[in-house]
Design a protein around this nucleic acid. Structure first.
Lengths: 116, 116
DNA sequence: GCGATACCGACAATCATTCTCATTAAGCGG
DNA sequence: CCGCTTAATGAGAATGATTGTCGGTATCGC
């Protein structure tokens, strides 16, 4: 399961992970895939985000630091992006409106060079 | 339907809109709620975003311009935010990695003044 | 080896969302 | 007002992702 995520260089849905694992001949249940993915997410080893249709997408990330993603909406390939601009903007906006304890999500969706 | 969205000053799920409309005595089907909400979204009159569990949440927005939200994770109240910094960051990042046709999502979650 | 325990796979259940289709409402020329 | 065409609607079935259930199995300390 971990291998499947590492090998893919983009986000995979739970179904895709399931198919990939099955493809290696390993006999595994779909429920287990969800359980293990959730465990990986809880452990901080995998990033999860919601596609535009609300489906959960998983990815093994190279860094455990806070970062964002640039995702190809065609092939799923993704690039990790760090940005101080976003962090600054988030903190600034929160302060201006009296909000505390603020977190944020930010993802970019487009077509990668190959899929253009 | 529009009234229900306007009256709430936070995001509502499709089910909540459905309940609100039914509460007024209006006889309407759930499928119609989804259809009309989608139409409103397409027309730019309503914003939609995905909650952390993937559920679609709708809100009547005051401006039809592109903007983001600062949302209280306790009471659901939200503030609309415009930011040129984000737009610049998105365009810049996309260009740098050869992505085209890029859109983005960015939301801030925190506790509003009253809920702090 | 033995019992306690955690994990697992198969499948049923749930929940949001979409699809289907017969029905109804609305526009319109006569 | 009438009949006809067309778009929108409601009810409920269908779909698809995700989660729960439960009997079975591998594991570990003793």
């Amino acid at each position: 399961m971990w291998n499947a995520l590492e090998r893919a260089d983009g986000f995979l849905s739970a179904q895709e992970v399931f198919d990939a694992v099955r493809g290696t001949g390993e006999r595994v249940g779909l429920a287990t895939v969800y359980r293990r993915l959730q465990a990986l997410v809880d452990g901080g080893d995998v990033d999860v985000l919601r596609g535009e249709d609300g489906e959960a997408l998983y990815r093994a990330c190279r860094t455990s630091e806070h970062h964002h993603h640039l995702i190809c909406r065609n092939c799923g390939a993704s690039v990790e992006i760090k940005s101080t601009a976003i962090e600054r903007w988030a903190a600034e906006s929160a302060r201006k409106h009296g909000f505390t304890d603020v977190t944020h999500t930010a993802e970019l969706y487009g077509r990668c060079r190959r899929c253009s």
